[in-house]
Design a binder for these strands. Sequence first.
DNA 1: CCACTGTTTGACAGCGCTACCATCTTGCGC
DNA 2: GCGCAAGATGGTAGCGCTGTCAAACAGTGG
Lengths: 360, 360
Amino acid sequence: MAERARTATDAEAAPPRRIRRGRGAVTLAEVAAGAGVAPITVSRAINNPASVSDALRSRIEQAVEALGYVPNRMAGALASARTRVIPVIVPSLANVVFVEVIEGIQETLEAEGYQMLLGSTGYDLATEAALATTLLGWAPPGMLVAGLRHDKRTTALLRHAGIPIVEFMETGRAPIDMNVGLSHVRAGAAMAAHLLARGYRRIGFVGLRMHDDYRARQRYDGLRRRLAGQAAITLFDRAGTEGQSGGQSGGQQAGWDALPELLAIAPALDALFFANDEMAVGALLRARRDGIDIPGRIAIAGFNGLPIAALTTPSLTTIVSPRRQIGREAAAMLLARISGREPTTRRLDVGFTLEAGGST
Amino acid sequence: MAERARTATDAEAAPPRRIRRGRGAVTLAEVAAGAGVAPITVSRAINNPASVSDALRSRIEQAVEALGYVPNRMAGALASARTRVIPVIVPSLANVVFVEVIEGIQETLEAEGYQMLLGSTGYDLATEAALATTLLGWAPPGMLVAGLRHDKRTTALLRHAGIPIVEFMETGRAPIDMNVGLSHVRAGAAMAAHLLARGYRRIGFVGLRMHDDYRARQRYDGLRRRLAGQAAITLFDRAGTEGQSGGQSGGQQAGWDALPELLAIAPALDALFFANDEMAVGALLRARRDGIDIPGRIAIAGFNGLPIAALTTPSLTTIVSPRRQIGREAAAMLLARISGREPTTRRLDVGFTLEAGGST
DNA sequence: CCACTGTTTGACAGCGCTACCATCTTGCGC
DNA sequence: GCGCAAGATGGTAGCGCTGTCAAACAGTGG
């Protein structure tokens, strides 16, 4: 303490123009001085306690405690050219689906002592590119990005970053590096098969701002191809109510609004496949209020397998995606590569399950 | 290009033992060499383009482009003792409520060129302390933390960090620095007044793992105090189904399970105030399936004001919290202090609105 | 044409930490 | 008691960038 104060005073007096630039926070050197050891020893005591003798370690720990030392990660990262921060880029946090994947990622990273740095793009590819640049500036050991579709800059950037990358959510060809997800095309086809089996022949697909949501488009494509020649299929792309907090909430309202409108526009429809469970639930709630018989008048199906799907009356037919698992697998794959191991596979299809309910 | 290669070769040949330590990424110095200027000029061209002549700036930009230079933030931050990264600590991402606050924070920070570093504690105060330490290691210019209750270490750490701090979600006394939120006690009291006005006199409060959720306890306290002497009040703290993705989803299931059980245990109840809308919606859906008349047999109310509350039949009585606004205000307050301005106020109560629906 | 102000550019040092190598202990077998 | 391996500690030199100050270079009025 006294030591420090004196040093500061000397510095001010003797070399007349030396300015203190740092934040003024306690540094490792100060801890070292306090404990009467060399800075490097403090560094070791903190990062690899086993390599320091018990006596010194406890002296150092005491000094750390007394001075309230918080290591400056920036300096450490710069010196060692290593960080334990892994950026994760997702389109939105308003969507439960991404949040659950993130949770899976987080628990896996955390268990290995890594930290997650989250960025969201708002479904904008330019924002994604900017974000990727910024995040790469933190010299991360790897990176996780939602989706396989990016703009050219992002792809180039990530490809040349020289670090392992996992693209998660959907499967597809030509990932930048590694890929974990499920086939949304096949999921759409599975729903088509289900609806056909139950005898529906005039099917509508209801999406929300599908310009942004290409995974919904993939589900639609899968549906359409599988239905081709066997049933009529119509696409309804809803604008949704902006302003609202998007994702989930907007979805429910959109489904609520869509049901009566579509029945009026296209009364011959006998089934609706909504782009997600939120919309489907909104439609179910609307049917309940307006006394529309589901599935008698029209069948309703969703996608994602949110828990609420099982609680509605009738229960909602949906496709369950293993979101947490996607997150865990993606993180595990990345960590494997970071630590030099080769993961079991660089491409993982986690699959999906069709949960047939009373709504179809 | 040739220049670089030659340099590398020389280094290998001449000083026999010099090792390259860095990540091997393109550095500012290389860009400077490429553009034929001093490193500091490149730094300026990037951080303050106006201070460099047009001719040099475009030469530098070209070099940046050609070499694919990505500035190393760590080095920059270390040298300037400034970052534009603001850590945000929340208990969980599984809860929509926090996510919406986060969105508000994010949009405000982003607009000012700051980046958000998100950490979640899983409602564990020890984890929170660890996280706070780690995050402070990034030498942030400020910090945002959910809630006013932390363990002693966290409080001490943040108080002595010497940076502005905003605690958001609930209002209360003695914040570490600044505070934005609403009074959960008053919200509980408001619901009590509403239920009394509608003639309910045997009221149950249904929480989920309330040991963790002290804000729910505050709502309960507000309810209890306001009802004291005028109505009977019972607390039901549900364990909920673990394993599930917690928050929202777990909540719906918990409400679904709770309704029939509570009616069996305490048949005299005439109203239930659920700790959140998810539980309340779960209960409404259960009532729908089991043919329980709401509010005839029993009234149901929730908290948060999620959009789905308006879509159920009957619509759900709930208290709307301005979550996005909390996020925006918290971030704005922090940014004001970071940039040396004094915010309009250091304590902000954003209030709430009781939305009376058909369920009470 | 000169002193003088304002702008653009550069040299230098250092932010706080860790990699690398050197040095100093210690313990052990013979 | 000596040589040697293994372990503990320290000295030195950066990591890649920016703050500070100084130098070089215009532009202006008399």
